[in-house]
Structures are given as C-alpha cells and as structure tokens.
Amino acid sequence: MTDPLTRRLAEQGWLLADGATGTTLFNMGLDSGEAPELWNATEPDRIRALYRGAVEAGSDLFLTNSFGGNASRLKLHEAAHRVRELNRLAAALGREVADAAARPVIVAGCVGPTGEIMQPMGTLGHDSAVAMFHEQAEGLKEGGADILWLETISAPEEFKAAAEGFMLAGMPWVGTMSFDTAGRTMMGVTSAAMVKLVGKLQHPPLAFGANCGTGASDLLRTVLGFTAAGAELPLVAKGNAGIPKYQGGHIHYDGTPELMADYAVMARNAGARLIGGCCGTTPEHLRAMRAALEETAPGPRPTLEEIAAALGAFSSAGDGTDGSPSVPLRRGRRRARA
C-alpha cells in the first residue's frame, strides 16, 4: 500500500471526493467557452479557493483543474504547447492547499477525454492518444499530484490508451466512465463491460466507477451493475446534483443538499467507497454528504425501487445489461430523508 488512496481506504473504509469544478468556476466568473485550465496561470487564487472549498466542506480528496488539459483540447485555445505547464500548475496549487490542511487530503490529477473519436470510428490513433495522456500525466506528476483521476470517458479504446499513458508516467490512477445513454456510455459500454475492461488492463486503476451521466438514480443503478458483475476493486460514485434545467439563461441543477446526502448514503450501501458529486455539486452539497455518511450507519444494498423513491425515477427502463429489471419512467416527488 504505497499510494495514499489505498492507505486511506484501508484506514477509513470510504472517502468523500469533491464536487463540480465547472459549476464552481462559472460561479467565480469563468466565461462560457473559456479554458478553465488557463486560470491555473492567470487566476491562481481562484483555483486555490476552488480546492479549499472542497477541503473545508469535508472532502478527503479533490480533483485538479485540468479536465481539459490535453493537447487536443488546449489547441482550441492556442495553448497546446502549454500542456505540461498548465497541468503542473494545477497540481502544484492543489499540493499547496492539501499540505496546508489540518488532515490528510489527496490531490487527484484530473484527466478528461481527448475530445476526439478514436479509430476505427474516428481519426485518433492509439499511439497518439497514449502520447497525449502521457504528456498530461507527466505535468500533473511534476506538480505533485498523489494519483491521477480519469473521468467522463465513453470509449473503451480511450480508457485503454489513458491506462497506458499513465503507466509510462509511473502513476497510480482511478478511472470513471459516464453512463448517460440508457445505462450505457455514449460508445455503448455497459457497467458489466467496464468490469471486464478494467480486469484486462496491464496497468489497472486503484479504483473505478461512474461519474456524471443523467442523474443520481441512474448512476447508482450503474454502481449496482458493477457489483452484480463481480467487481473486486473499490468503486467510485460521482453523480450529478440532480437534473439540469435551463433557467434565467443559465443551467441549474435541481438536486438539493438533502437529496445528495441521501445519494451519498445509498452509494455507500450500494458498494461505492469513493463517493462525491459531479455537475452542480457545491460545497454545500458536500457538507451535507459528509454529515450523512458520518452520522448514518451502513445499511443493506438498496433496491432499484428504493433508489427511485428516494432520488427520483430512472431516465431509462434498463441499464443496458441482460436481465435488467424495468423501472417506470416517471419522476415523482421524492421521499424526505429521516
């Protein structure tokens, strides 16, 4: 157990991850279309505030501001030549905040998808993808990230390329995919298929799971799919704070702190050990999640009916796996948490 994530999980059993990077940065003044990673150089105090918000809310780990920090995405902002620099700064600012905390906090170097479609469906080749992930990983490593955190991946080919790039950098990692299309990723991966994918990697992750997607209910159904498929590694649940709605010219998520507290407890009971939030999740949500996890004793694995009653109906009748039970596609009023 040489990596801090494995050590902390052995000590505590579960860890609270962070919330939404984009939501928080937009609230700080980031303009739509602006590359958040550039703020690592131009607005370091705001990035420190982003990280501190998660730590002060009770997160045991937070992701760095580097989701789009690969050459493919940064070239859209004429910054492809700054990959190493911007990722190093993202992690270094995180290292500074984590080291100043009163308790151990893990800095997870965030890595998102390349934004390109890989061969054979697209034009991005395996070797090129590996090189992009390796370059980003080296920058995060230089800045002091404890681990790497791959998220919002849809294609198995990209997941494999990232694992290879991280192996070249000699970095431990966590990986999540986004199951947002009737229980599958955009490229058709099911929860059961992801379990098989992870099991075949030469450089496997420390933990794996799901992030983002369509809502907390769907994400927990995916977590149950991982356990049903015999997942042996620690599982990650990082769901959105409710459902996005367009109001007053902006996107708002309808998930309350109370709903996310319910979600956090149910995620732990479903088998997740790394529990956080994705889009729409603020420090206020995280504080409620932390309190609920600490104050609520572990319980039995929730049923699909219990998840739907507490968090809202599923967006699709099944999760894409064989034999998936059908759940009514309706979103009624949710049950209040006791």
Rank of each mutant, 00 (worst) to 15 (best):
V111Q: 09
Q136L: 05
G115A: 10
A108V: 10
V111G: 04
G109W: 01
A90N: 09
E96F: 06
R88K: 11
M132G: 11
L148R: 13
R88P: 02
D146W: 09
A92I: 07
E96G: 01
A155P: 08
P113H: 14
G125T: 08
K141T: 08
S154R: 05
H126T: 07
D146A: 07
I153M: 15
A108Q: 04
G122C: 02
P104H: 14
A101D: 05
H126S: 04
H134K: 05
P104R: 11
I147N: 03
R88D: 06
A155W: 07
A100W: 00
A137P: 03
V97C: 05
N87P: 04
V111L: 15
D146E: 09
F133E: 01
T152E: 04
T114C: 01
A100V: 00
V130K: 01
T152R: 02
R95E: 11
N87F: 02
N87H: 04
A90F: 07
E138L: 13
E142T: 11
M118L: 15
R95P: 05
A98R: 14
A100T: 01
E116F: 03
S128V: 11
G144A: 06
C110A: 15
P156F: 09
T114A: 00
A91R: 13
L150A: 15
A101S: 10
A90M: 07
E96Q: 07
A145C: 05
A90S: 15
I106V: 15
A101Q: 02
E142G: 05
C110T: 14
E138Q: 12
V111E: 06
G122S: 03
E116G: 01
A92E: 15
D127S: 13
Q119G: 08
S154A: 15
I153A: 12
P156T: 11
G143Q: 07
G125A: 10
V107G: 09
A131D: 04
G139M: 00
H126K: 12
I153N: 10
G139V: 00
E158G: 08
I153V: 14
G143W: 05
P104E: 15
F133M: 01
E151V: 07
G125M: 04
S154K: 04
Q136Y: 07
V107C: 09
H126I: 09
L148C: 06
Q119H: 13
D127L: 08
A101P: 00
G112H: 07
V105K: 11
G109D: 01
H134A: 14
R95V: 02
M118V: 04
A91F: 12
S128Y: 08
A101H: 06
T123G: 06
L150V: 14
R95K: 14
E116S: 03
G94Q: 12
P120K: 08
V130F: 02
I117P: 01
R95A: 13
T152W: 03
S128E: 15
I117F: 11
P104T: 13
F133Q: 01
D146F: 12
G143S: 10
A92H: 13
R88H: 10
A129T: 02
E138D: 12
M121W: 12
G125N: 03
A102I: 04
H134V: 03
G144W: 05
H134D: 11
A98Q: 13
A145S: 15
D99I: 02
W149D: 06
V130D: 01
T114M: 00
V97R: 04
